[in-house]
Design a protein around this nucleic acid. Structure first.
Length: 490
RNA sequence: CGGGCGGUGGCUUAGCCUGGCAAAGCGCCUGCUUUGGGAGCAGGAGAUCGGGAGUUCGAAUCUCCCCCGCCCGACCA
């Protein structure tokens, strides 16, 4: 009884503990950390400044990457005429269940032709780009747009699956298949870098099975991250579309030999879902843990004082080093609210701020600050740093935190990655735990479907095309073509 | 889209079965006191009880329709 109460007292009272109910933990954290909230519109969310700032950091990082390789930002229309979106059969078949349509408009009344609200833009981009591409000299065209899309999802969750979400969608047009395939790999590696270097989330990179491939693509590749509950999150996809779309939209060019050829195209995207990945990939029972590189606030300062006099002394002390620290590019916030320190500690831990500096009269005396680390929140693990070296030390502490967070996630992924040879072993595994499970697979969609059926929801995530497969398919025993990762997906 | 549950000040909820002045804790505002891990006292503001229709002298409460959310299932490039 006492133990239970003490234990509970040690954790935020406003969020459900992860170990009790992961889904509720997630929703509680998203809302109480002020990342996002529900809206009056079914399945659509409001992204609040603290959550949007994380997305903005991801945007900046990725935008810089693609600009460095010659990609350009465009904007294409939100509304896509029905005849345009319908032209690629396989594509529209895949999307039809989720497309929202505009059928009437203001005083105009019913429209002659329905307009789809973009669920993705391959069709409109192809239709538009067709007129800018005539010669091999016009290629490659490396386009990207940052926008919103609508997919009428039946079950929604904040950030992870919403009816409207924000993303970037890249659409590129190439003269050869090899060049387009290389583009797919380049972008996939950018996505890996965003995940690992910025979000501190290790990922599996590989090719999707036929069943998991984008509608209309020749093949799709993805990055898959592991969440703290062992579920997989597809956090980015890069597709080789072959000539499927250029055939349907007549996107052709005249080559060096004066022969007309169809373009080879790609498309790729990451979305606000990545913010969900950060939350579920790093969080704990106290709330969020944010990677310094994308944290809206990297260091929070909590002044501690007894009276007006000590308050003035503490403030003056903070001012002696605050500008210097900011000058090093550190996103610092001084919490001067008239609340008690304990309140502030819990508040900023819930919001996942990497580092906290506690500054009280004792620190002022010693010309130092007390450092508390979100990865080691215990009272016993606080350290002190000399104030005069803060501008130098804090960037190092943040870099250390970033490394440690990535290592922690890597360790977690390693501890939750397994290997099996048979369907029976795989089914047994998923009865008691989650994680990534590698197994040999013959490539037959029927075998894949069988796994999903017997495990009630486990699917293939991706596989390395170049890796040699050994052994017999876990389902039908035929020679394995791939070593594929299975997991429960979000 | 099917089955189940829920929506009451900013938040968490009680009240609903059995119709009769809308209530508590937290948060918010003011003052005092306090401040090194979620303080205390005093006073105050804040709700057309998710929306609409109906039954009734009277509806948060009963009936019907709709909206939003949660859980389970189906679906998910």
């Amino acid at each position: 009884m006492t133990t239970l109460m003490e234990e509970q007292a040690d954790f935020p009272k406003e969020i459900t503990r992860m170990s009790v109910d992961f889904d509720r933990w997630y929703t509680d954290v998203v809302r109480k950390a002020e990342l996002a909230d529900y809206s009056p519109v079914r399945g659509c969310m409001v992204i609040r400044p603290y959550g949007f700032a994380i997305w903005e950091a991801i945007q900046r990082a990725f935008d810089d990457m693609i600009k460095s390789s010659g990609h350009e930002n465009w904007y294409f229309p939100l509304l896509i005429p029905e005849d345009v979106i319908m032209r690629e059969a396989e594509h529209i078949e895949g999307f039809t269940p989720e497309v929202a349509w505009v059928t009437e408009a203001g005083s105009h009344g019913k429209l002659d032709q329905r307009l789809a609200i973009r669920p993705t833009s391959e069709t409109i981009v192809g239709t538009v780009m067709r007129k800018y591409i005539q010669s091999w000299r016009d290629l490659p065209q490396l386009t990207n747009q940052w926008c919103n899309v609508i997919r009428w999802e039946l079950r929604t969750r904040l950030f992870l699956r919403t009816a409207e979400f924000l993303w970037q969608e890249g659409h590129t047009f190439h003269a050869s298949a090899d060049e387009a395939r290389a583009e797919v790999d380049l972008i996939l590696d950018y996505y890996r870098q965003i995940a690992e270097d910025w979000l501190a989330l290790p990922v599996l990179t590989g090719t999707k099975s036929r069943a998991e491939t984008f509608a209309g693509a020749e093949y799709s590749k993805s990055i898959e991250a592991m969440m703290r509950d062992g579920y997989a999150l597809q956090a980015g996809t890069s597709h080789y579309l072959g000539q499927n779309f250029s055939r349907a939209y007549e996107i052709a060019f005249t080559n060096r030999e004066n022969v007309r050829e169809l373009c080879h195209t790609t498309s790729w995207g990451i979305s606000t879902r990545m913010v969900g990945g950060v939350i579920m990939g790093h969080g704990d029972d106290r709330g969020l843990i944010l990677p310094p590189k994308v944290a809206p606030i990297q260091v929070v300062v909590v002044p501690i004082y007894r009276d007006d006099e000590s308050r003035a002394r503490v403030d003056a002390f903070i001012e002696t080093w605050e500008a210097g620290v900011r000058g090093m590019g550190v996103r610092l916030h001084v919490d001067r609210r008239d609340d008690r320190p304990g309140d502030k500690f819990n508040h900023w831990e819930l919001k996942g701020v990497p580092l906290r500096l506690e500054v009280g009269p004792r620190d002022v005396e010693a010309r130092q600050v007390t450092l508390s680390d979100r990865l080691h929140p215990g009272r016993d693990e606080k350290r002190t740093l000399p104030a005069m070296a803060l501008a130098e030390d804090l960037p190092h502490e943040l870099a250390r935190f970033q490394r440690e967070l990535l290592q922690r996630a890597r360790d977690f992924m390693a501890e939750n990655t397994f290997e099996v040879q048979t369907l029976a072993e795989l089914v047994e595994h998923f009865k008691t735990r989650n994680g990534f499970v590698w197994a040999p697979w013959c490539g037959d969609p029927a075998c894949e479907a069988r796994v999903t059926e017997e495990t009630r929801g486990v699917t293939t995530r991706n596989f390395d095309l170049d890796a040699a497969a050994e052994g017999a398919c876990l389902v039908d025993g035929k020679p394995a073509k791939h070593r594929v990762a299975f997991a429960r997906p979000y």
